[in-house]
């Protein structure tokens, strides 16, 4: 990877607000900007949480509609069976 390529990547990250950089003399120091990730976290939460809830409710409804309701394995959703 060339220096120019590294610089281009860092500029892209900075443009997105994910990092901040500061140049002192000949040295440019980059640091991660945690707040830059907040919109991403918001997006994921807004989509992921309802989707998680829906899939849990799907599990409940599947269990309810089992003809003879098996009582042994309805609860554990992540148990490999």
């Amino acid at each position: 990877m060339t220096f120019a390529a590294v610089l281009q990547h860092l500029q892209a990250l900075e443009a997105c607000g994910l990092i901040r950089s500061e140049k002192i003399g000949r040295v440019r120091t980059c640091r991660i900007e945690p707040a830059g990730l907040a919109p991403l976290a918001d997006w994921i939460a807004e989509r992921r949480i309802p989707a998680e809830r829906h899939l849990d409710r799907l599990g409940q409804i599947l269990a309810e509609t089992d003809q003879p309701p098996p009582k042994n394995q309805n609860q554990e959703k992540d148990e490999p069976q």
Binding site: P39, L40, W43, I44, R47, R48, A51, E52, L55, D56, L58, G59, L62, A63, P70, Q73, N74, K77, D78, E79, P80, Q81
Partner: peptide, 12 residues
């Protein structure tokens, strides 16, 4: 913003 997430569930 572009993002991807994955959820896994196992149902009986």
């Amino acid at each position: 913003i572009h993002s991807t997430f994955t959820i896994e569930r196992t149902y009986p």
